[in-house]
Write a protein that binds this DNA or RNA. Structure first.
Length: 209
DNA sequence: CATCTGATCCGCT
DNA sequence: GCGGATCAGATGC
């Protein structure tokens, strides 16, 4: 990995997240390769973030979040869906960016085989569970390096997106008003916004942008 | 379009 | 034992 990529990813998740829009995650498998250009992500900090898996400190599940940047953190959601994060920040500090949606830019036929033949192209990786399924990710991929020549590869965009919007995070029951969701405005592959259940009592932290 | 529900497993209390 | 960083389909405006 080049030094400038490492410099970007070694920052805390809320700073890295908007820069990941337009990056491409590719998974090479014996059944084919699928590449997804990210259009929507969400930042999750560590012990200071009540919505983060790392909020109550390190556990067996979230240990990857505390590791070095540039690896994948995959978890099983609601017993059904595999959701993927890019681990960011310095080693020892929990920080990750959830990959919420993207556009399939290679391997559309492979992705459709996994998601269903009737699924519209723009919906193949719309939503974190769907993105994980399109890439055939499971918890076995948690901890995988994204820059070591393995089957999972994260590559930067050729040109940076013209504009990135930000707003409240989706579906979380705590601190959902923290504006740590970032997306490509107007893009059809961005998932529908669903507000979290309860009102937000946590103060919004200062964003060092 | 907004809101609700069931499916289904695991991590943590 | 409870609830979740979800999704698709149904129901109600």
């Amino acid at each position: 990995m080049s030094p400038d990529l490492l410099a970007i990813l070694a920052q805390p998740a809320p700073l890295v997240a908007p820069h990941l829009i337009g990056w491409t995650l590719t998974h090479h498998t014996p059944h084919g390769s699928v590449a997804i250009e990210l259009t929507e992500v969400e930042a999750y900090a560590g012990e200071s973030d009540p919505a983060s898996h790392a909020w109550r400190g390190p556990t067996a599940r979230n240990s990857v979040m505390f590791g070095p940047a540039g690896r994948l953190y995959v978890y099983l959601s609601h017993g059904l869906h595999h959701c993927a994060n890019v681990v960011t920040g310095p080693e020892g500090e929990a920080s990750a960016v959830l990959l919420r949606a993207g556009r399939v830019v290679a391997g559309v036929d492979v992705a459709r085989r996994r998601r269903g033949e009737q699924v519209a192209r723009h919906s193949l990786a719309r939503g974190p569970g769907n993105l994980g399924q399109a890439l055939a990710l499971t918890r076995q991929h948690s901890g995988a390096h994204l820059f070591d020549g393995g089957p999972l590869v994260l590559s930067p965009p050729s040109r940076t997106p013209a504009a990135v919007s930000s707003g409240p995070r989706v579906g979380v029951s705590r601190a959902h008003d923290w504006p740590w969701r970032y997306w490509l405005p107007g893009d059809p592959t961005v998932s529908a916004y669903r507000r979290g259940k309860t009102a937000d009592t946590q103060p919004v932290p200062h964003l060092p942008l």
